[in-house]
């Protein structure tokens, strides 16, 4: 591999890292409140808002039903509106985070629903407000599940970011398509695969370890 190619791979790796972490951050910040809302505003929840709950639920399902590659293309006008461009790392962050947020929110929702209702009741009995219950009961008790879900989200986001690379977002996917596929450079292809596998492994192992530590208490 030429030194230029190595530089290109390093640059692409950093682009992928930036794309994924920015999108993951947004998915985390948006997904947790969304999940909390989906859990607490439903029937029997303590912020009852059945209509908004149903509407948001439908929206989340809608986004989850659309394959990422379709979403990527369909969101182009919106992406241009937000970032002023449709190529590059920041243009990829828009569809990536929009696709990851509902995905992550649903996983977090499941973990939040699994919190024993008896704990909520105990918190009510000590005079906890609804906000206190979210803050001190629901989120901390669901944390292992939420972290596990976030790990899955980030891993699938790494895959999606490569896809975004194919339509001009840059990053490892872009390099793999342009050099590995179109110019038949097998070495580049293998290098990209190795880097992606390593990245996914690091994310997965870190997530698993955090979950294990929390569950061991």
């Amino acid at each position: 591999m030429s030194p230029q190619m190595i530089d290109r791979l390093i640059g692409a790796f950093l682009d992928t890292l930036l794309m994924v972490s920015a999108s993951a951050g947004i998915a985390l910040l948006a997904g947790i409140p969304l999940a909390v809302f989906l859990v607490t505003s439903g029937p029997g929840g303590f912020f009852p808002a059945p209509r908004l709950n149903r509407a948001l639920g439908a929206l989340v399902n809608g986004f989850r039903a659309v394959p990422f590659i379709v979403l990527l293309v369909a969101l182009i006008p919106f992406t241009r509106l937000v970032t002023g461009t449709t190529i590059g790392v920041w243009a990829a962050v828009v569809p990536l985070s929009i696709s990851a947020t509902p995905f992550f929110a649903r996983i977090a929702e499941v973990s939040l629903r699994e919190v024993d209702p008896g704990l909520v009741e105990a918190a009510q009995s000590i005079g906890a407000s609804r906000w206190h219950i979210v803050r001190h009961v629901l989120l901390p008790e669901a944390l292992p599940g939420i972290i596990g879900g976030f790990t899955i989200t980030v891993v699938s986001m790494i895959g999606a970011s490569a896809m975004a690379g194919a339509v001009g977002a840059g990053g490892l996917g872009d390099v793999a398509i342009r050099y590995g596929y179109q110019r038949f450079d097998t070495t580049v292809m293998v290098a990209v695969i190795v880097i992606l596998v390593a990245l996914v492994s690091v994310v997965q192992v870190t997530g698993d370890r955090a979950v294990r530590r929390l569950r061991a208490r």
Binding site: L119, E121, A122, A123, S125, G127, S129, H136, E141, R217
Partner: peptide
């Protein structure tokens, strides 16, 4: 009004001290 339960309903993510301190903390 305090309340205790058949299955204790303690927060698994908090230590004994944190569980007992929670009512004070939120008050």
């Amino acid at each position: 009004i305090g309340m205790i339960f058949q299955h204790f309903n303690l927060l698994a993510a908090k230590t004994v001290r944190e569980n007992v301190a929670l009512p004070l903390r939120i008050a």
